[in-house]
Write a protein that binds this DNA or RNA. Structure first.
Lengths: 194, 194
DNA sequence: TGTACATCAGTGAACGCGCGTTCACTGATGTAC
DNA sequence: TGTACATCAGTGAACGCGCGTTCACTGATGTAC
């Protein structure tokens, strides 16, 4: 049967947000279309009324995830006390909460190596999404020139992603907290000094 | 037919080293036993005379990879000029060569999120392997106490892994080089100052 | 306003495919006597 | 030293399974007249 335009938009949205979470939680290769569609409450055959292919969904899910987490970071920065924006961003990124919730967290830490393995065409699209993310963070970055700020962001976020990713490997919650704490101190000192 | 003990040891070794490379290049989920065995020159059925399961191979391959890259880092450190050991390690880790050869490179940057998704039992084994890696690097780390040195290593390597991993996402070779160069400067300044 | 028709989101079954794993079998090597 | 036998690495075929994708079909909704 036919459904209303609103109905379709709602399901499209559900598939996208479910995939964005599932990919980050399980990895793109381990997270199947069938599983995603089941969570949405549809049969997997219906998937192709919404997306061209799984690869297509993957890139859109990455886009969605980067948009949401980027927005989250901007919110954190904006609600921080005067001059503490970047510190707040770093502390949020390297929080225990972020480490324990990969499904709603940073794409870099959840899917980094997978992104690196994608064909160049896909990596170009992803690079553009990462660029947009950096652009949002730029206003909260110290530095004299625009280029200097960008360089710092290109260093800070991948570094933090690496720490977060490896903290997630640790089976010991206390150790994990300790690593994150030390990393927060370090990155705040190096990037948000003052 | 039966084969000599030496013959078996050789094939075991071949499977392990081929898997260690293949997993890092393609990811553990995307790299099948069939593919690995074909590269070795055997049929996939023969795999189970050498390993209990794919999971078993995965952990052993990670162990092998960490051992080899750890040894490589120690070699780099030892052949560096007086007082330049850690600088040499950082420069090797964040080299273009390392970025372009994930198959022979650091497990963290190639498989990090995948490791984080493994069950606790597996993560405990991997944590022990990472601990052994850190232990090897320890002598080249500045710091007053053993704990201080360990803390620095736990921060430095995951951070570098994140940068390397994200540099690999960049489709532009020049941009990739630039990021790595800036990161080398940064980490040398912060960890191997002097 | 009422009627006829086109649209198309979702279903359910099927497709070929590669996966990890199992198993009966082979036959040269290692071992026991 | 020579013979009989056990071992077991590797083969090849098969297993069930879930994957991404396709497609004929359904039928309520949106559209045209």
């Amino acid at each position: 049967m036919r459904y209303s335009l609103e109905h379709k938009a709602q399901n499209h949205e559900k598939i996208l947000s479910t995939a964005a979470r599932s990919f980050r939680e399980r990895g793109g290769d381990t997270s199947g279309i069938g599983t995603v569609m089941k969570k949405v409450g549809l049969k997997k055959g219906g998937f192709y009324r919404h997306f061209k292919s799984k690869d297509d969904l993957f890139v859109e899910a990455v886009a969605r995830a980067l948009d949401e987490t980027g927005r989250g970071m901007v919110e954190v920065a904006k609600s921080a006390p005067e001059g503490q924006a970047l510190r707040a961003v770093i502390e949020r990124y390297l929080s225990v909460g972020h480490a324990n919730s990969p499904g709603t967290g940073c794409v870099r830490a959840a899917l980094g190596p997978e992104l690196a393995r994608k064909p160049v065409a896909v990596r170009k699209r992803i690079e553009a999404l990462l660029e947009a993310y950096r652009e949002r963070i730029l206003p909260f970055m110290p530095g004299r020139t625009r280029g200097e700020k960008q360089a710092k962001i290109r260093l800070l976020f991948p570094s933090m992603a690496g720490v977060l990713m490896m903290a997630r490997v640790s089976p010991d919650a206390q150790r994990r907290e300790q690593i994150l704490m030390e990393a927060r101190e370090f990155f705040v000192k190096c990037f948000a000094a003052g």
